[in-house]
């Protein structure tokens, strides 16, 4: 049984591969003259020759971000990109309550990109690093942009200074009331 399948496999194999390419260079033996060693062609290239990591990463974007919305938030050529200083709201598609905070750092690393959100509840600073390509994250909304961006991309220095974030949720509510 095994032998039969083996033979069949051999047959299919030889039909798959065209005539073996013959290597002519090198390997001269003293007495027999030039000896030719048969060299079989390699199997067709996977992914049409695309490097594996490139393929995997592109495939991940397709799977995790089919509309390209999250990717465009990090795209530097996009005028409405996510920047440090923006106030954002992250909405989840499971039971988790939405998360609001000021972006103090954006780390770009393909599908592993994340943003660092800072907020304060009752004068206590809380920082959450959020991987935005996680499929449980439904939306990333920019609620407010600063009138003037700070000259640094990482705003770690604002921690514990007078530049630090205040209670964002309550200040946003106040703003809403005023506008109403």
């Amino acid at each position: 049984m095994l032998l039969q399948s083996f033979k069949a496999l051999r047959a299919t194999r030889s039909s798959l591969i065209s005539t073996p390419i013959i290597q002519t260079a090198g390997y001269k033996t003293q007495y027999l003259g030039q000896k030719v060693v048969k060299v079989y062609q390699p199997l067709p290239k996977l992914r049409e020759g695309t490097p594996l990591m490139k393929y995997v990463k592109e495939n991940q974007y397709k799977k995790l971000d089919p509309n390209g919305v999250k990717k465009s938030l990090l795209d530097k050529s996009n005028p409405s990109l996510l920047r440090s200083g923006d106030i954002v709201r992250i909405t989840y598609n499971n039971k988790q309550p939405p998360l609001v905070g000021m972006v103090i750092a954006v780390k770009r690393n393909g599908c592993d990109s994340n943003i660092l959100l800072r907020n304060s509840y009752a004068k206590l600073g809380v920082e959450i690093r959020v991987p935005i390509f996680n499929p449980v994250i439904e939306r990333v909304d920019i609620l407010k942009r600063p009138t003037k961006y700070r000259s640094r991309n990482k705003l770690y220095y604002i921690r514990g200074t007078k530049l630090d974030v205040t209670d964002i949720e309550s200040s946003l509510k106040k703003q809403q009331r005023r506008s109403n």
Partner: peptide, 13 residues
């Protein structure tokens, strides 16, 4: 070839 994150449908990384 390198490392990537893998997300499950439940959101585990």
């Amino acid at each position: 070839r390198g490392m990537v994150p893998f997300y499950t449908n439940e959101g585990l990384r």
